[in-house]
Design a protein around this nucleic acid. Structure first.
Lengths: 223, 223
DNA sequence: ACCTGAACACCGTTCAAGT
DNA sequence: ACCTGAACACCGTTCAAGT
């Protein structure tokens, strides 16, 4: 007997890589990267810590797979949309990536910490080059521009994510700005006069508006 | 004998905060942030792990102080130099900060992970606002521009630092570029045609030239 | 105030042994 | 191939006790 489906004999009973990754993401969302321990992860999946090494060679591989998974969640379709001007294509992709990553702020440090290789990152890069192909840049400059955009986007997301406590119930943008504004209130105006005068604007650094403002100027400079 | 300086009775024998931080930096330089353990640090300073809690409330405070110390190493004087055009002031500061941080790549993730507050960060921000005061921007836009520049600079440094193995004997830029170029050699040209064509440029992403190229375009867009 | 020694409650990873 | 149970070599932090 046992001539049914060749791959599986019945309903999925044991864990697979996907299930491990899903639980890993849940842990990181709840408590950041430090909360992703092999023991907590194993218990969530219903395994012994040692059993996890059947699916991943070590903890670092789980983190890397998590990063890849999140990057893949960002929609690259706008980059390929020939009906849009190239600036709009890059902007839509950037906003989408920011939205995905700010929903998982605990994972963002891992995104910036690893080398940006892997098939998903390559695909994103390739499609950014495609979008920049219509910008009238020389081929070499299109690549340089693509990297510059990625640097801005990831840098902005990292600084924003750093101010979001993982696990807390996803404070809306307005609340995060208000909290920053309050912190600037305790500032010595004599020591930091320009900062004091610009406090309202600086409080709004962690906003979609600021993100778009900077990206727009950058794209203008790249054109 | 031994009636010299009132503060110290003899040659420095016990540790102070500065000594702890210096040894902490040495550990991070040698093995990245994971190498900074309370036990390794205590042994380097000549103390028991528990004694470190006399100087810092916990490990996170040591990392935060380290980040502050490194940021303070960057020379902000160019930002205040009224003899230079504002673009040049920002560029010199950015290049200096990059140089400092790439000498300590293991500490860079901590720089991007924490909220960018603290007196040193405030001073840097204040002086960037000063430099941008001569750029002809409205006050609010000067602040937005200052943040945009910081996002670019820190993002670029983070992606570069991620490709430097801490402890290894500081590979020169040319070697790092060559290593990337070799990795692009194994790429499938059919799957990633644009990437394949731009491989030489992309290999040089982690270079002073690319850093300056992107910063120059950004500053152009901000003007 | 500063430090030691020892403990507590954790870690990631390995591995013989089982199915 | 997949998993358990147990162990090994670590962690950060606390705290009574000493000076």
């Amino acid at each position: 007997m046992d001539q049914g489906s060749p791959a599986r004999r019945g309903p999925k009973r044991s864990a697979d890589r996907g299930a491990v990754l899903a639980e890993a993401l849940a842990l990181v969302d709840a408590g950041g990267l430090p909360a992703l321990t092999m023991r907590a992860l194993a218990s969530r999946v219903g395994l012994t810590p040692g059993a996890l090494y059947t699916y991943f060679p070590d903890r670092a591989a789980i983190v890397a797979a998590l990063v890849d998974h999140l990057l893949a969640e960002a929609d690259t379709a706008p980059l390929l949309d020939g009906a849009l001007p190239w600036q709009e294509r890059l902007t839509r992709f950037a906003l989408g990536l920011r939205e995905v990553l700010l929903r998982h702020p605990g994972a963002v440090p891992a995104m910036l910490a690893g080398p940006f290789t892997g098939p998903v990152a390559l695909t994103v890069g390739e499609r950014m080059l495609h979008a920049l192909g219509d910008a009238g840049l020389k081929p070499g400059d299109a690549a340089r521009a693509s990297y510059t955009v990625m640097v801005y986007v990831l840098g902005a997301i990292a600084l924003e994510a750093a101010e979001i406590t993982p696990g807390a119930p996803a404070a809306p943008e307005a609340d995060r700005v208000a909290e920053r504004r309050a912190a600037f209130g305790h500032l010595d105006p004599a020591a930091y006069p320009l900062t004091h005068a610009a406090a309202d604007t600086m409080a709004a650094y962690v906003s979609t508006g600021q993100f778009r403002w900077g990206l727009e100027r950058l794209l203008t400079g790249l054109a």
